[in-house]
Write a protein that binds this DNA or RNA. Structure first.
Lengths: 270, 270
DNA sequence: GAGTGGTCTAGACCACTGT
DNA sequence: CAGTGGTCTAGACCACTCC
């Protein structure tokens, strides 16, 4: 016998299963042995086997379907969200006014490689009083009316949600332009940059503030995220030429299928 | 009786505890009742109570210390890592050659608000063969020798690790400059940008590629991260004026104490 | 030594999935 | 229907911390 493994048995089982997955012994979308079977195999109780499986779930290695079984997860392609390309392109697209041009290329499409017809969009508008983060980031007093645009995009084939976001614009800015609340015109080709242009605002800089956390229960359902897989939370702050915040948006992105990219250009040394 | 709550009992217990924490009934750094006590209180087995506590841990709401108890987590201040300010500043600092100037202001310090003397640094150099991500991002064939610099910074008072990173430079670039491997000179005031300057390389652009995942067991220990709290994984790619990758680095940051910020400046409409 | 959380057992009943 | 994972029990022993 070699040196003893002092780790808990369930950690060892998780390790053994992970090895079988990595070695190709267990293939993606094939079921693992059932929990009673694994308990039998490793001489453990079902509880301990479940502890092992919980570790694998938390690492996104397996996926569980109730009543069916536990399956090896196929490695998912990460969608790269490249802000340094996306935002300038979005600003250019915002110049397109003609409805027929709209949607020829969209931001989500640019990210994902999916074509326009592969995606379905949902948008909902309402006017609320700014509170908390929104008021703070927009630099307005709490209670100030803001337009809220809740937006989500889905894959048509699977119904999977690709992202959800919620953007906020001071109501003052768009007060005299009710047509901006026409959700049937979604998606706008330049997103809210197009809408802001309609009311004479040009966005000159965008700051992304990024955090990560485990999803809420609702987010986990909507984004089809396994227990324990984190999400990115991205707060986007758009400013005009005076540095005034004209739009803020909270974007939630699935952490196992997303990669964010930013390029910083540097000034040459003198 | 109101409408029944059909959620599992342990979810209800987690909810109840969370309410007590939010309401201030349970204060940060005070212990929750012990598991047997909670089991008694809610009329459940210890197993079910542990399930409830696992939910709270995964959300970063409580922290567990073995042999001591379960404690309400104080809300931690997020350290903002602002690349759009950090990288240009780092490049300027790389111009400082004089040893006495070194360390007057460091990158980690700028982020965290901590002063130089609050932090302890560890760096280790070796030469390895590039593989996988490193070879791919540096755009060199696998097996190419690269200098690896493993770097970590710690708070002096608590010993807590603030970040860990591992940077890679093609060995060809620094072959004739063994002094660059002198770890006693850490931290370099401009990081590897200073080292690269010594060998005649000027970094002109930096791309950050960001993903998020749950930490490995080692990372969880080093960064003092609770079970289920995610980490950021940031791959930094530095390029010279020809667009050649001259350094790549993998940085792991604790997801509950870090916020990343990037600003994209946009060209005006014609 | 008493109290804490970590691991583990050998059962049980349930809701859900397939046939 | 049998098989799957989800919840739950009432114990047990352990390593660790504090007194």
């Amino acid at each position: 016998m070699t040196t003893r493994d002092w780790r808990p048995r369930y950690v060892q089982v998780a390790d053994a299963l992970q090895d079988q997955i990595r070695s190709g012994e267990l293939l993606p979308d094939t079921p693992l042995p059932s929990e009673p079977d694994l308990a039998e195999t490793y001489g453990l109780s079902r509880t301990s086997v479940r502890n092992a499986i919980r570790l694998l779930r938390a690492q996104g290695i397996v996926r569980v379907e109730r009543g069916k079984g536990t399956f090896v997860r196929a490695t998912v392609q990460r969608i790269v969200r490249n802000a340094s390309e996306r935002y300038p392109a979005e600003k250019q697209r915002a110049l397109l006014i003609d409805d027929t041009e709209r949607g020829s290329v969209g931001a989500s499409e640019m990210d994902s490689g999916l074509t326009f017809s592969d995606l379905r969009f949902e948008a909902k508008y309402d006017v609320i009083d700014a509170q908390g983060d929104v008021a703070q980031l927009l630099e307005v007093p709490p209670g100030t009316p803001v337009l809220r645009r809740a937006f989500a995009s889905f894959k048509v084939d699977s119904g999977d949600q690709v992202q959800s976001s919620c953007s906020y614009i001071p109501h003052e800015l768009i007060r005299h332009h009710p047509e901006l609340l026409d959700s049937s015109r979604e998606p706008w080709p330049g997103g809210t940059m197009h809408q802001l242009r309609t009311v004479g605002v040009e966005v000159m800089s965008i700051t992304d503030r990024i955090t990560t956390r485990v999803p809420t229960v609702e987010e986990a359902e909507d984004l089809h995220i396994e227990d324990g897989i984190p999400v990115f939370v991205l707060w986007k702050i758009c400013r005009d030429k005076d540095g005034l915040a004209v739009e803020v948006a909270e974007v939630v992105l699935p952490g196992d299928r997303t990669e964010l990219a930013y390029t910083t250009e540097l000034e040459p040394w003198a």
